[in-house]
Amino acid sequence: MASPTSVPGVRPTVAVLDYGSGNVHSAVRAVERAGATVELTDDADTVLNADGLLVPGVGAFSAVMEALAASGGTRWIGRRVAGGRPVLGICVGHQVLFDEGVEHGVRTEGMGEWPGLVEELQADVLPHMGWNTVRPPEDTVLFRGVEDERFYFVHSYGVLRWQFDQSISAMKPPQVTWAHHGTDFVAAVENGPLSATQFHPEKSGDAGLQLLANWLGSL
Rank of each mutant, 00 (worst) to 15 (best):
G112W: 03
H25N: 10
R33E: 00
E39P: 10
G57L: 02
D45S: 13
G205E: 05
H25E: 05
D99L: 07
G57V: 05
E32P: 02
G101Q: 11
L219N: 01
P12Y: 02
D206Y: 10
D51V: 02
G192R: 14
A213R: 14
G145P: 12
F164Q: 11
P86I: 00
G110A: 04
V14P: 10
D139C: 06
V159K: 13
M171R: 15
V14S: 06
N191S: 14
V102K: 06
P56M: 05
C91Q: 03
S62N: 11
V189D: 06
G52E: 06
R11T: 04
A27W: 07
H25Q: 10
Q122G: 09
S156N: 05
G52D: 05
L209Y: 02
S26L: 06
V81R: 15
A187K: 14
A15S: 13
Y157E: 10
H94R: 03
Y157Q: 13
V125K: 15
L97M: 14
L142E: 02
V141L: 10
G78S: 03
F61I: 00
E66W: 10
L211H: 04
D99G: 12
W162F: 07
V118F: 05
V134K: 12
R79C: 00
Y19P: 15
A27E: 00
F153T: 02
T177P: 01
Q175R: 15
S71K: 04
A188L: 13
Y152T: 04
Q175H: 15
V47C: 11
T13L: 02
T177S: 09
P56F: 11
V31S: 12
G20K: 09
V125D: 09
G182A: 13
M1C: 07
M1L: 12
S21K: 02
G52L: 03
E66A: 15
P136W: 10
P136Q: 08
E120Y: 04
T13Q: 12
A207V: 11
A179E: 05
G9A: 07
